[in-house]
Design a protein around this nucleic acid. Structure first.
Lengths: 355, 355
DNA sequence: GCCATTAAACAACACTGTTGCGTAATTAGC
DNA sequence: GCTAATTACGCAACAGTGTTGTTTAATGGC
């Protein structure tokens, strides 16, 4: 529900977005099926589809008859009708990719950045990659650029905050810098949130999930009530500094015995995974999570250790009665998942309001 | 956004609910002000108000002229147009109250229950109190009964689950039992969620808040994205068993060093509050909370100790840069806040869809 | 007594999804 | 090869929405 009054235009926009979303998730649907899934009448669907067709977002495909009666016509999204860009900034490099309207990766550019690179270098590198990726693409088809970066940052204002321990990165308006350079709408989000998108979009109502990014630090992207939860200051997910041993060793964050420092200083991988599991069990209980996805460089280095040890810890620590289940997954996405998720954020914006 | 198609009826329902909400929160508004706040045109507001008036939900009041021009007519909610009931079940007693449409408590009944009471006794007691509270009230004006109880429970199905350590309380369909006995629509929710309602309704978009209930156990009601977050199995908020010392003392929950056992076994109140503060700091970071409300019998016993010690702990543990603030409050509500919040849940249902 | 000003209603309108019915395209049966 | 049945989909009329343009009502200032 929006907070403001709704009118007929908003009504149509809602239903139009609804139908496009159904077509996207199903891979292709007929008008009859759209009516069933959306709850609208067939006539309403026909009208909206007729409205959509001249915009060339859909492919119309005659379907072979599957029984008596006039065969259904399949409506598919044209993957090349629009495209989105996604980027990720890591400590020593960057990666930018282009996807079509349905989320397939079409092209990818990556490169390295010098140690201690500054904002200008980052903007230059990404903008250059964007230019290359858009070489022969009609500008009107480009929806925008999503950027996943290490937090803390302000998603609403598109600014990186000052906690990054690199010089020159104090309160940088990265979104606007990139928007100016590329001429594109830009979305800036934490890498954990982008990863959460990568692991859920375009599901209609993803399960309550924590996507745990274990790399240099430990953070989570939270999927709650069917969407990414960022919090009022868009800084949710600071899971790494959750206390699991309040009298434990000191961490750089100033606290003692947080998950991150315990994980870092653990004697073995198994121990590290066990401590991570303790923190995750807490998270599951507080948020009633259904699913945990482990992701990141450290996980990729030893997926089985983490899967088994964290899984065992969850089984040990959580009562898990018959009405409660936790699915633990190790991500099957590659390193570029953050860039992919960032592009998905751009796509999600389009599907929420397909102008 | 709803998941299904929207039509004109839904549009009107949305706008009607919107206007009633604005009138409620402002205590009274003119059509012009409603138009400003809702974003609808004055004409749309006039039409919707004209639709609302015959239902006798509103009082129309000529306002004294506040300058030149035709004076505005104030629209107020008629507190006695509807009423809601709220109940809370504690370990040794119960409390049921009645509120008007705007949330003021009109009447209240409380009583004790024998040690180890069973479901039938609870239903009898509450149903009897309801009957007394509704003595001379026109049945069509009664919106329903909200019940706040100790979890875990299934809010969707209205069933208490089996973790309560009282005999006869295995998987009890309390909602349906009460609905059958009273003939009213019944909502069953965790006491922490009811408390969260009591501390936020009817705010339009309450701050991201954890309402911490410290009594026999420790739980939180979470206000996230402007509404109570229950989680997919409606079991979120199990904060008491969050680990803060993974090698600490064993708790009845089967885990070690959780907030509840540490709090319980602390040497002094100050120590207890300090440990609670550690757990809360974690919660703030993970969910990017703006506000913490301390509530419950234990807090009421020593409000200043908790306010100061937890506050100090939050200041010590959280970096709290300029862009991040946490408000810590000690609840100013009385013991009946759970019943009050349960009644508010009923009212919130009405305002979301005023039939 | 008149006028400017503001609130609110009246009337016409464009647009929404719905209802009722007609048309197109296919299979099944003979 | 024809007909009937079935299914998909569009056309037309409709009730209901919020919007726009205009009129009426009620006040203060001069």
């Amino acid at each position: 529900m929006t907070e403001t009054g709704a009118n007929l235009r908003g009504l149509r926009r809602h239903n139009r977005a609804l139908l496009l979303g159904h077509i996207l998730r199903a891979g292709g649907l007929s008008r009859v099926e759209l009516a069933e899934r959306s709850g609208l009448t067939q006539q309403a669907v026909s009208k909206i589809v007729a409205d959509l067709l001249p915009e060339r977002l859909l492919d119309v495909e005659r379907q072979a008859a599957a029984g008596v009666g006039k065969p259904r016509t399949l409506l598919r999204l044209r993957a090349d009708a629009r495209c989105a860009l996604g980027a990720q900034l890591d400590r020593d490099g960057f990666l930018v990719l282009r996807t079509g309207l349905t989320g397939e990766v079409e092209d990818l550019v990556e490169g390295s950045l010098p140690v201690g690179f500054g904002p200008q270098q980052a903007v230059d590198a990404v903008a250059d990659a964007v230019r290359r990726l858009l070489g022969d693409v009609d500008p009107v088809r480009v929806l925008g650029l999503g950027v996943g970066a290490v937090g803390p940052l302000d998603h609403h204002q598109g600014r990186l905050r000052d906690a990054t321990n690199m010089p020159g990165w104090h309160d940088v308006p990265l979104r606007d810098l990139l928007a100016e350079r590329t001429g594109l709408p830009v979305i800036l989000d934490k890498n954990t949130n982008a990863a959460a998108f990568a692991h859920s979009w375009p599901e209609e109502t993803p399960a309550a999930t924590a996507v745990v990014l274990v790399g240099t630090g430990i953070g989570v992207g939270l999927l709650i009530d069917g969407r990414v939860y960022r919090g009022p200051r868009t800084n949710a997910g600071e899971f790494g500094h959750t206390t699991i041993a309040y009298a434990g060793p000191h961490c750089a964050c100033g606290r003692r015995g947080c998950v991150e420092v315990m994980h870092q200083t653990a004697a073995t991988r198994h121990d590290a995974a066990r401590l991570l599991g303790i923190g995750l069990a807490d998270l599951v209980q507080v948020l009633d999570l259904e699913r945990i996805v482990l992701f990141g460089r450290t996980i990729r280095a030893a997926p089985e250790v983490y899967r088994e040890t964290v899984g065992q810890q969850l089984r040990d620590l959580l009562p898990v009665p018959y009405w409660q289940r936790i699915d633990l997954e190790v991500s099957d996405l590659d390193e570029e998942a953050v860039a992919l998720g960032a592009a998905f954020e751009v796509l999600a914006g389009f599907y929420a309001d397909p102008k």
